[in-house]
């Protein structure tokens, strides 16, 4: 067996240590070693966005990051999005507008949408659609997802 690599990283603000094999991805480790199963695997090839997480403030697919690469970095996942029981405005609008249907793409959608609104608090419908193009959904036809994101943006702008 390949020698295990020791990794120390921050996940949702907590210091976490784990051991991984060199070929294991951040997605594998989040789900199987750290029990953070909110990050989903839809393809493992960067084509669906279900495993979207933030890595040092950048939106990435956790399946395209080796676990060994996150040494000393900051990882944020869906589990860290709500502040205790207080949902993020995006989480609330996804509930209110039914932007989450089966729910499998939802964590990735939310992480991606949050990254968008942090850069661009007032995106157009087209901008939201292109930003979220890397997050596949088969249940909603995207309509209610886009509405949820636009509603959250509006609310967060205080408009």
């Amino acid at each position: 067996m390949a020698a295990k690599i020791q990794v120390s990283t921050t996940v949702n603000g907590e210091q976490r240590r784990f051991q991984c094999e060199p070929q294991q991805t951040l997605l594998d480790v989040l789900r199987d070693e750290l029990a953070l199963t909110g990050t989903k695997e839809g393809c493992a090839t960067g084509d669906c966005g279900a495993c979207s997480v933030m890595l040092d403030g950048r939106l990435v697919d956790a399946c395209l990051v080796l676990a060994a690469e996150v040494q000393g970095k900051k990882v944020e996942t869906i589990e860290g999005m709500a502040q205790g029981e207080e949902l993020h405005p995006l989480q609330r609008t996804f509930l209110e507008h039914n932007g989450s249907q089966c729910g499998i793409c939802t964590p990735g959608m939310l992480m991606a949408a949050r990254a968008l609104l942090e850069r661009n608090p007032d995106p157009s419908e087209t901008e939201v659609r292109y930003w979220l193009a890397g997050n596949l959904c088969r249940c909603t036809g995207y309509d209610k997802i886009i509405r949820s994101v636009l509603a959250a943006a509006k609310e967060m702008r205080g408009a």
């Binding site: 960067g46 966005g49 890595l55 939106l59 990435v60 697919d61 395209l64 990254a115 193009a133």
Partner: peptide
């Protein structure tokens, strides 16, 4: 080159 996520890497 791929999605926002892919371009992040």
């Amino acid at each position: 080159i791929g999605s926002i996520q892919v371009k992040g890497r």
